[in-house]
Computed example of a mutant assay.
Amino acid sequence: MANPEPSVEDALAMFRSIEEHFPSGSLGNDKWYILALVAITSGGHPEFAANLYSHLISRPDLASTHARQGLIRRLREALVKLVSVVGVPKPLEAVFCIAEVEKEEDKDYSFSRETWSSGEANRVRGRQWLDQIYRANHAATQRTLAAHKDFEWLSEEITYGLYLSDHSILDGVDTELVVLSGIMMQNLRRETGWHLRGIRRIGVSQENVERIQQCIELVAAFCGLSLTKVPRVADIEHEV
């Protein structure tokens, strides 16, 4: 017998559990919902992005239009970055679902990549962030991709150059939360290991990364997914 579809009440309970378990004391109170948004979208339930948004704006600190516009910029940027991990359809559906519950006065019409261009400066910026995440490990990836240069170009110019090295709205930890959550929800062993290692390399403690992984697993269970292939942060700690 198929599992019943999760309800809005189930989703809200799961969001509250994530907020309680996430290491906000160390990382800040504005990061748990990035993980929740990305994981629920990657897990095949982007419709609950609207419920997460409504849950967040019910709080006193997000009562003003200015605060809500700041929030939507962060949520939107997380979904833009998620495109580089899961493709367009799921993040786009999450955007549409949030838009359905936004009030007109709360909408933010800014365009973060209006002045973006490809080229050397973009590649350098992308490579600098890529090097922080991968360090010497990237040499092995380059050797593999020497026979698949389209993917090397895609990584430096687009994945990192266009998406992940832009920290004007989301900082480096936010960005790795997006990438780690999106990849882990796909039950990918190799790439999850890379980004467990990557988030450690930019300064998040082993204990906090373990708690982050447990939060992602809460969303996976909500979505009916089993993350059977992914390592734990302790498994990759010797590589950090």
Rank of each mutant, 00 (worst) to 15 (best):
L12K: 12
P23M: 01
D108E: 10
Y33V: 04
E77D: 14
Y134I: 01
H66G: 02
A39G: 01
D61V: 01
L227I: 04
D174A: 02
Y160W: 15
V230C: 15
V85I: 15
E102T: 09
H167N: 12
R68F: 04
V233N: 00
V124M: 06
E77C: 04
V83P: 00
L27A: 09
R73A: 13
L145K: 08
I199W: 10
D150H: 15
D61N: 14
E210V: 00
E104Q: 14
D106R: 07
M185V: 05
G203R: 03
R201E: 12
I40K: 01
T175P: 08
E157M: 12
F96R: 14
A50N: 05
C215R: 01
Q142I: 07
V204S: 15
I236P: 15
E176T: 01
V204R: 12
C223R: 09
E77Q: 09
L52H: 05
K149H: 09
D235S: 09
G182I: 03
L130E: 05
G172E: 14
F22R: 04
T144E: 07
T192N: 11
L154E: 11
P23N: 08
E120G: 02
V124D: 10
K90C: 04
S205Q: 08
E114P: 02
E176A: 03
R113L: 10
E105V: 13
P91Y: 02
V178Q: 03
L52D: 00
V209Y: 01
E77T: 13
N3A: 15
E19N: 06
H195N: 09
G28N: 07
D174N: 06
P60K: 13
R143K: 14
A147F: 08
G44M: 05
S205G: 15
I236Q: 03
E120N: 07
E191K: 06
G119E: 10
D171L: 01
E157L: 04
E217C: 09
S117G: 13
S54Y: 03
D171S: 00
V101Y: 11
K103S: 13
N122A: 14
N137Q: 12
E114F: 12
A78Y: 04
H66F: 10
V240W: 08
Y134G: 03
V124K: 11
E93M: 13
K31N: 02
A140M: 09
Y163F: 14
V233E: 03
A36T: 10
A49L: 08
N51P: 04
E210S: 10
R125V: 05
L188E: 10
